[in-house]
Nucleic acid binder design. Structure first.
Lengths: 190, 190
DNA sequence: CGCGACGTTGATTTGCCTCAACGATTGTGG
DNA sequence: CCACAATCGTTGAGGCAAATCAACGTCGCG
């Protein structure tokens, strides 16, 4: 059931079949309809989600009362609210399926168990975190180093598939601009 | 020599004396004068730095030809360019001491060795990464959710010690605003 | 069919930047 | 020890990029 995750893990580290089986036995599949939530504000986030197919987003409601997307998660990405998990406090985020989506659910307790029983799994998670952190740093770099227009153009050429799967107002939200702004940029030039 | 690091590690995980001694034997201390660099653009980043005392910053030169600070590192923080380390490509960042600073140097090869020999150390690094990632996410949240003025006021009340140790133009750079802007905000109200 | 979700376009506003000039403080070499 | 330069912060005037406000078109779907 979670061959896809095992394959993904093996892209980064060696994992024997026994450990693979053990990991598989601890993880559950969840099927989500479009617009379904796995986390809403006021709940405590208790799991890490691995996207098998489909597309998720993590967002919050900003002071201006608009949705502010902080992350997308495509196939083979993990998504969660680490802040809520670590602090054990209530989240103020939504995690929602943008399309019909299948996720593997790694419960927090299960994660703790897997980490102690399977050192290779801890290594995998460390590597994922390092990638996530690097991505986050890169994104911040872009926020500081590019104008809104440059950022949109860069995004849509680097991730053309996103532009197809995600409504424009979500791209706007992710980039921190208004939908009107994107509309104008597109009108100005192809 | 690196008791401070060992103490820090033990805040998060159990570490026996033998492993502690092994870690200590692999790490070197480096004393940096104010304004000294441990990384400059065009070099490959090869180590992770743990600040024992003093203060470091990580920054790059933006398109507009100004210094853009992406991170500070106070005592007990790690600082590095993971992107360069992972990709083995040349960095485009500076890592510089803002004050006279002492850092412990964890060379990349040494890190790899420690991680395989001391599982507890890998756990520690994973936890540090999770904290760093969470901090990065929080900062992005603030970038999206607050005006520049709010962000400055929030920063200076939450980190008053920073305001004392760091020149104002660096705070401006970190927040992504101009020094003039900060000056005006301060003039408007205490 | 009719309603809601999504995108477009125009007019106006605004928050912050840019450019420029000027103090204050620090530090450095003669 | 002083003169002078460099660094850092302040203040004013003007400009601009993107937001806001508002109206309208269109598509998809219950």
């Amino acid at each position: 059931m979670c061959e896809q995750l095992i394959t993904h893990i093996r892209n980064f580290i060696d994992l024997n079949d026994e450990d693979a089986a053990f990991i598989s036995s601890k993880i559950t599949l969840q099927k989500l309809k479009k617009k379904a939530f796995v986390l809403t504000p006021g709940k405590q986030c208790k799991a890490n989600y691995f996207v098998v197919s489909g597309l998720m987003r993590l967002y919050f409601i900003s002071k201006k009362d608009i949705e502010q997307i902080t992350q997308f998660a495509l196939e083979n990405w993990w998504i969660t609210d680490y802040d809520s998990i670590d602090s054990k406090r209530l989240s103020h985020f939504y995690i929602q399926a943008i399309e019909d989506t299948e996720v593997l659910v790694l419960d927090q307790q299960t994660e703790a168990e897997l980490i102690t029983r399977v050192p290779a799994f801890e290594r995998y998670l460390r590597i994922m975190l390092q990638k996530a952190f690097t991505a986050s740093q890169r994104r911040m770099e872009m926020l500081f180093n590019m104008t809104d227009e440059e950022r949109y153009r860069n995004f849509s050429t680097r991730f053309p598939h996103f532009n197809q799967r995600v409504p424009q107002y979500m791209v706007a939200s992710y980039l921190g601009v208004t939908p009107q702004f994107i509309s104008r940029v597109r009108a100005r030039k192809a």
